[in-house]
Design a binder for these strands. Structure first.
Lengths: 217, 217
DNA sequence: AGCGAAGTGGAGACTCGTCGTCCACTTAGG
DNA sequence: CCTAAGTGGACGACGAGTCTCCACTTCGCT
C-alpha cells in the first residue's frame, strides 16, 4: 500500500520524500525524535506543507525512518556476520558506534514516544527480531569460541551498547567521539572472557529487553 | 545572604522549604531538571505560590538542590576514602550507583540547562572541584597499587559512570536496577588492570571534561 | 487570648513553541 | 501547452508550563 503510493510519485516529489527521510534521520539522531517538524523540513529544503503531505503526522515519519534505518543496520550486521569468521571480531565491528546503529537504538529503545510509534509496524518488527536473533547468534558463537565471558547474555551486551550510544551533551564533537571510542574499548574489555568479577543475577536475555513494554509477571 | 534569609524563616516555612528541596531531588532524578514546577510543589505538599516565594525561578531551585546534593556526595566520598584502604575498593564503592550520585551527574554533566544554572554558583563549584580532585586521587592511588589499568585517566572513569547513571527508560524498575548492576560490574572489569586491549588516544582527564563549556582552543 | 506579621495556595492570565491546514502559486511530463 | 500533481510558508488553534496575585490561614510574641 505504502509501496504503491510511493511508486506513483512524480520524480520531484519522490526526490523530496527521500530528502525528508534523510534529513529526519540526521535530525532525529541529533536532537531526538521530538525535533520540530519545521526543523526537519528546513533541513530537507522543503516547506512543512510538503512534509505533512507525505507524512500525515510525526508517527508516520518516525515509522518511515525506522524502517529505512533498521533495514540498513540489519544489512550491515548480515554483512559483518558473513565476512568475519571470529565471532568476537564480528561483535567488535557490530558495536563500533555507527550513526545508523545509534539512531536505531534511539528509536527502538530510548524515547518513549518513538518506541510506541514503531512498535506496531510489522516491517520494523521483523527487522528488529532479526537483529536480535543475530546478536544472540554472535554472543553464542563468541562464547563457544571462548572469547566472550560466559556469564553474559545478549541482553547484557545490548544494555551496554545502548548506554554507550546515547547522545552525550559535550560541546566539542571531536572530544566526545574520542571519549566514546575509549569507553567502547573499555566496555569491550569488560566483556572479554576471563573471570574478572562474578556478575550478580542471571544473564539478561533479549527477551528481558523486549518484554519491557508488556510488563510480564 | 541566602543563609541569613533562610535562618530567619518561620519554623513552618523552613519545614516547607526543606520539603520542597527533598521533593525536587526526587523529581529531578526521576524526570530530569525540566519537570514542571507544579509537580514538585505537589510532591512537596505545598502550592506553587509557596514554591515560587522561596525560589524565584527554576534556576534558583536547581542551585539549591545542587548545593545540597553535591555536599552529600562529597561527604560520602570523603568517608569512603577514609575508610577504605584499597583504592580499588574505594573506587568500586564510589561508583556504586547511588541516588545522590545519579542526581549529581544529572545536574552537573548531562542536561544543558541545569549545567548552566549551576555553573556560576561558587559553592557548588567548590564541591565539584573537590569531588574531581578526590576522583583523581583515587585513580592515581589505584594505579599505583596496580589494580586499575594504567592507561585511563580520571576523566575516562567519569565518562563511564556518567554513561551508566543516566535514566534508563525501562518500565520495570527492578529489572532496570539489576541490569545496571550487571553493567556496572562489567564496566569495572573493563577498568581492571591487565592488558586487555590498548586504548586509543590519550587518557581523558577531568580537565577535558570541565573545559567542555569554555570551548578552549 | 489577641494581634500583626509571615506565610500559604491555587485560579487564571500570559507566554511560547509547535502543530497542521489551506490555498495561491509552480512544475513535471504527457 | 495544458493540467494534474506538487509546493511552501503564513497563520490560527492549541496545550503545556510559568509565574502573579491576593483573600485567607498560621505562627509566635506579648
Amino acid at each position: 500500500m505504502a509501496a504503491e503510493s510511493e511508486a506513483r510519485l512524480r520524480t520531484d516529489a519522490r526526490r523530496n520524500r527521500d530528502q525528508i527521510i534523510a534529513a529526519a534521520k540526521v535530525a532525529f539522531t541529533e536532537f531526538g525524535p521530538d525535533v520540530p517538524m519545521e526543523e526537519i523540513a528546513r533541513r530537507a529544503g522543503v516547506g512543512v506543507g510538503t512534509l505533512y503531505r507525505r507524512f500525515p503526522d510525526r508517527e508516520a515519519l518516525i515509522r518511515a525512518v525506522a524502517r529505512d534505518n533498521f533495514g540498513a543496520v540489519v544489512a550491515d550486521a548480515r554483512a559483518v556476520l558473513a565476512e568475519e569468521h571470529s565471532a568476537w571480531q564480528a561483535l567488535v565491528r557490530l558495536l563500533g558506534r555507527s550513526r545508523s546503529l545509534r539512531l536505531t537504538i534511539q528509536l527502538a529503545v530510548l524515547s518513549e514516544g518513538a518506541r510506541a510509534a514503531v512498535k506496531d509496524d510489522p516491517i520494523t518488527q521483523r527487522y528488529r527480531d532479526e537483529l536480535m536473533a543475530m546478536l544472540e547468534e554472535i554472543v553464542r558463537r563468541a562464547q563457544r569460541e571462548g572469547s566472550l565471558r560466559a556469564d553474559v547474555g545478549a541482553g547484557d551486551v545490548a544494555v551496554l551498547v545502548s548506554l554507550l550510544l546515547r547522545r552525550v551533551p559535550v560541546d566539542s564533537e571531536v572530544l566526545a567521539e574520542s571519549m566514546l571510542d575509549r569507553a567502547l574499548v573499555l566496555i569491550l574489555d569488560g566483556l572479554r572472557a576471563d573471570p574478572g568479577s562474578p556478575l550478580p543475577g542471571r544473564p539478561v536475555t533479549t527477551r528481558d529487553l523486549t518484554d519491557q513494554a508488556t510488563r510480564s509477571p
